[in-house]
Design a protein around this nucleic acid. Structure first.
Length: 478
RNA sequence: UCCUCAGUAGCUCAGUUGGUUAGAGCAUCUGACUGUUAAUCAGAGGGUCACUGGUUCAAGUCCAGUCUGAGGAGCCA
């Protein structure tokens, strides 16, 4: 067996004196021809490996370069140096893989995030991305734990879909037709009957409609999978391929939905605080360092960890859309004409309005409910006032909309009327409407953009830095 | 897609009014040193100034277009 190693995270907790230790990892720095800072990705803290002078040949020592991979056997001793309490004295050093220092792009120095994006295949070997992706993993794990413990069923909804009815955004087409000379029907249109699935297909923009099918049988389900939008969005908050969590609950209304969303967000933040404090401390310091370069009024009032604790310890503010508009209309910012866009009942709130509510007025996450029906999707349940729907968005400081959800319209007649009004073809969604034909129930759900959650928890500011291999317009390297 | 800004060594950047052979720090290489903490000290190598075209006696510098990146907006999660 080759892998008899101890992970560095575990090794650092061991008392000095332990013999016959095997560690493997990649070299971060090699100082003084003696001291190797070795990292294996289990933690940002390196183990210091000491190669006593004279015990190893120059030929071997020359091969210990940044990011070369080593297998070290030795003994754990208390360190004579100041930076660490224990270190490994090497008895043997085996170079598993050389790394040509002249060609290796990462140096033991600070790199810009933009540069690291260009070498996304290697950026995991930096402290920042080490922490980000360990936190990302912990969040994913906590999500499954939360829903599992609540009795939700993890449902895998399809990636390739046939319905383009939801209108959640532009879609990527999936086809095997030759695009230089596709088959055409008599009217000159491309004949998708000849295509692989015998019809037009796309990558999914949401698993919600299929999720509702699951919820109306299992009661409570969630999805957690990749989602695709072919929008030409070039922002720090948008990806063409991103991961989304979409729970759906039968026998639930809008309030149940809000309660679920709030406890869900608190659970996963709590999990990371409990299990990833070392990474959070690093990210907290990184953010503080970053913000030093900003003008004073652009800096956040709280550090990263304080912000997460604050979210955990406080109830989210819950207001209706109508109340939100009133707050905006009565705000000093409005009266001083600080808003670029008009404020009046019926508008789809702009980023500046959401930011005002979250960052200036309430200074915490805000759940806005009961939006005008004209700016929301067809499946949202109509309220008795005839003007609004039972929708809810959760707005987070620095990120904006992090959750979008609603109670769904369970009444067939009202749902089909709404579809007619919005020119959505009923026959394409016959299977969806069957849930309302056979034992319909009040139900609700929401979607949470996973990467936006990772942004919030890590304090990173660009969504391309919290997914391993970002897909954005004109960019799909790796 | 729109607006703004940027692109000079492997990285981060400087480059004056358009004027001789384009600079610095870090990294790399060579040597010295050896309990270092992004080690230190000395020396060396390293450039299609994003690309294409234009103006000019002369362009890294001015103009136009293209590409790429960043920030903001829209769309949204």
């Amino acid at each position: 067996m080759f892998n008899k190693r101890i992970k560095i995270k575990e090794l650092l907790l061991q008392p000095a004196g332990k013999k016959d230790i095997v560690v493997m990892g990649w070299v971060r720095t090699f100082r003084n021809n003696q001291f190797i800072a070795l990292n294996d990705g289990s933690t940002n803290t390196n183990i210091q490996v000491v190669a006593p002078l004279g015990q190893f040949t120059d030929e071997l020592l020359k091969r210990i370069t940044t990011s070369s991979s080593l297998k070290i056997s030795g003994e754990l001793v208390s360190s004579q140096g100041k930076g660490q309490s224990v270190e490994v004295v090497a008895h043997s050093i085996e170079v598993l893989g050389d790394s040509d220092a002249e060609k290796y792009p990462l140096q033991p120095k600070k790199h810009s995030l933009e540069f690291l994006r260009e070498i996304a295949h290697l950026r995991f070997r930096t402290n920042t991305f080490g922490s980000v992706f360990r936190v990302r993993h912990a969040l994913a794990f906590a999500i499954h734990q939360f829903f599992h413990e609540k009795g939700f069923l993890y449902m895998h909804t399809p990636i390739v879909t046939t319905s383009d009815a939801e209108g959640a955004g532009e879609m990527f087409r999936v086809t095997t037709l030759p695009f230089d000379n596709p088959p055409r029907s008599e009217d000159g249109m491309i004949d998708f009957k000849e295509d692989f699935f015998g019809r037009s297909t796309h990558l999914t923009v949401s698993g919600q409609l299929e999720g509702e099918l699951g919820a109306t049988a299992f009661g409570e389900i969630y999805t957690f999978g990749p989602t695709f939008r072919a929008e030409n969005s070039n922002t720090t908050r948008h990806l063409a391929e991103f991961w989304m969590i979409e729970p759906e609950m039968a026998f639930s209304d809008l309030e149940d939905n809000m309660n679920l969303a709030e406890s869900f967000i608190k659970h996963i933040i709590g999990f990371v605080i409990q299990h990833n404090m070392e990474d959070l401390v690093f990210l907290d310091q990184r953010l503080a360092e970053e913000e030093k370069q900003l003008p004073a009024d652009k800096r956040s009032e709280m550090g990263l960890i304080d912000k997460l604790r604050f979210v955990l310890d406080n109830d989210f503010e819950r207001i209706t859309y109508t109340e939100a508009i009133d707050i905006l209309l009565n705000s000093a910012a409005y009266k001083k004409k600080k808003f670029q866009y008009e404020v009046k009942w019926g508008i789809d709130m702009q980023s500046e309005h959401e930011r005002y509510l979250v960052e200036k007025h309430f200074k915490k996450p805000v759940i806005v409910t009961n939006y005008p029906k004209d700016i929301k999707a067809f499946y949202m349940r109509q309220n008795d006032d005839g003007k609004t729907v039972a929708a809810m968005d959760i707005l987070a400081p620095g990120i904006g909309e992090i959750v979008g959800g609603s109670q769904r319209e369970e009444r067939l007649a009202l749902l089909t009327q709404r579809m007619k009004d919005m020119h959505i073809a009923e026959d394409e969604l016959w299977w969806y409407l069957d849930t309302r034909r056979f034992g319909t129930v009040p139900h609700a759900g929401f979607g949470l953009g996973f990467e936006r959650m990772v942004l919030f928890v890590t304090g990173m500011t660009n969504i391309r830095d919290v997914i391993a291999f970002p897909r954005t317009p004109k960019s799909a390297e790796f």
